[in-house]
Design a binder for these strands. Structure first.
Length: 113
DNA sequence: GCTTTGACGTATG
DNA sequence: TCATACGCCAAAG
């Protein structure tokens, strides 16, 4: 297991219940700015048995990244709604459920570089 | 090792 | 809002 992987998993695990974050935000928090794809790659190959709030990770647009109609897609919708996140047409209004810079700082202790 | 793939993001029209 | 183009780069084959 690489360090960078652990940082990514840690960043995902830190997303509070009822909120969501984008792949890019997770990558940045993991010290890998511009590598959103890596986050997706890792999530798709998450070791079985490892519990992560993977469903709280969305595209920057607020859309669910998985293929609409797929099993994973439906699971993600269900899990998000189960914790009070509004999902409409495969999309979550980030204006209300997304982590903004302030909350980011509060949660992850970011006080600047 | 080289090539392809991909749960992404930003810019542009 | 939708589409297309390009950058990104670790994994998988």
């Amino acid at each position: 297991m690489q360090d960078s992987h652990r940082h990514v998993y840690a960043a995902i695990a830190a997303i509070p219940r009822g909120r969501v974050a984008s792949y890019g935000a997770i990558a940045a928090r993991a010290g890998l700015p511009g590598r959103a794809r890596l986050v997706g790659t890792l999530l798709g190959k998450t070791p079985p048995g490892m519990s992560l709030p993977w469903h709280r990770v969305l595209r920057a647009s607020g859309h669910i990244a998985l293929a609409p109609g797929s099993a994973g897609y439906r699971a993600q919708c269900r899990l998000l709604r189960a914790e009070g996140v509004e999902v409409r047409n495969g999309r979550v209004p980030l204006s209300r459920f997304g982590l903004d810079a302030d909350l980011d700082r509060e949660l992850w202790g970011l006080h600047g570089p």
